[in-house]
Amino acid sequence: MPGLPQPSDKAARLIAGGASLVASSVLADAGIEHYRGSFENRAMVLPLAGSALSILTDTRLALGARASGGTGALAMSVHAANVAIGAAGLGFHVYNILKQPGGFTFGNVFYHAPIAAPAALMVAGTLGATALALGKGASRLGPVPLASGRSLAGFAAFALAGTSAEAAVFHFRGAYHNPFMWVPVVVPPIAALALGKAAVTGTVGRITNPALTATAVLGFAGAAFHAYGVSRNMGGWRNWRQNLIVGPPIPAPPSFTGIAIAGLGALLLMRRFARG
């Protein structure tokens, strides 16, 4: 029945949903941060455009649309572009930090271009491309085998660890003034370890699924905590034009959710693969 998802699409849809969430997080976060940076460099609009296109294609896929030839190729080029923009962004952000007075200092890492943020766009692109390939029934993405789910599990584990490291740096900037700020530096690494172990061994441990689910939940809870954090700044929401920018980034934590959902998709693939 055309238009309706086939059972084999379920994992692809989950991964596309995760990719869409990560892309949404990038769009909103980079939107705010690059506005703070006054779009000083015109290239600062690229991640916004890339993530917006990515949301469109990922969401279509997540809702069960088939990726036919033409749109599929277009979507794949969006994902490839996002990986490239993210990689270039990493370079730009490192350059931005190094050119500040004092160079590579804690202060410049804290307050200038966030060093690892563009990697989130690479994650969105990679997850989107994976979902697209799986949706088309492909068993490989380029040279990478997809069917076993292990490569995706490994990638999601790596992405979770990286995102958690970023949270650790910025929560250190906030001096962990609220004990809940430790949660995103404790829970996602557990999920990342479990998922990474699954990727290496091919068997899914018992805590993997709950840890990923917890990470997915804390991504949304984090956004709520950050909204509360914004309200604690002077003037609260009335002063939103300042506090939305300088307060804790509300759109950032849901990228945990997106990656965790993709990780759950990987688990689905692994189970299916194990069943043959």
Partner: peptide, 29 residues
């Protein structure tokens, strides 16, 4: 107060700050 400033480095300006007529340096939007 309550609103202070967001962009505090040199050549950075919040939208609610003065823009100099002759200015070419503060870039951006």
């Amino acid at each position: 107060s309550p609103r202070g400033y967001v962009r505090i480095a040199e050549n950075r300006r919040d939208p609610w700050e003065a823009l100099e007529e002759r200015s070419t340096s503060p870039t951006g939007w």
